[in-house]
Amino acid sequence: MGNDKNVDVSKVVREKDTKTRNENYNQYVNQITPKNSLPKNMIGAFLVGGIICTIGQFFTNYYMSMGADKEAAKSYNTITLVFLSILLTGIGIYQKIAKFGGAGTLVPITGFANSVAAPAVEYKKEGHVFGIGVNIFTIAGPVILYGIFSSWVLGLIYYILKQLDVM
């Protein structure tokens, strides 16, 4: 297995220098470890992500047909998708969709909702403050922090460009 490629296992066993040996070993492991099929994952993500967005579009259209303006319909749609995602997380279905859909379930707002709902369910037993309060953003936290940070940076750039009359 894998011996026909660049790093043979003998280069791991015979190597005296620990650093080089570890590099060789990591390369060898990388060769023999089965990988997820990228095309298969991409098709799954495309389909599931597409379906979620189509459902979102359906809700937006529906709310607009009920008389909401475009901005309000979008907000109602977001609320609906977040609700559905949390519901499906709670009854154990979202995880199954995510296993197939991968990034297709991660990138839309439903993935964000899942990443907040999952710790809330898990850490409820450790109490409302130290359990849910501390842990609810363990997965979503980085997204929130760096999302806010990058919008601050962009705002600053926008302000400077505006002062310089570039924009």
Partner: peptide, 13 residues
């Protein structure tokens, strides 16, 4: 790893 209900894909390894 992650809370049980978090949706993600596990690698083959």
């Amino acid at each position: 790893r992650y809370p049980l209900d978090y949706g993600n894909q596990r690698p083959y390894s």
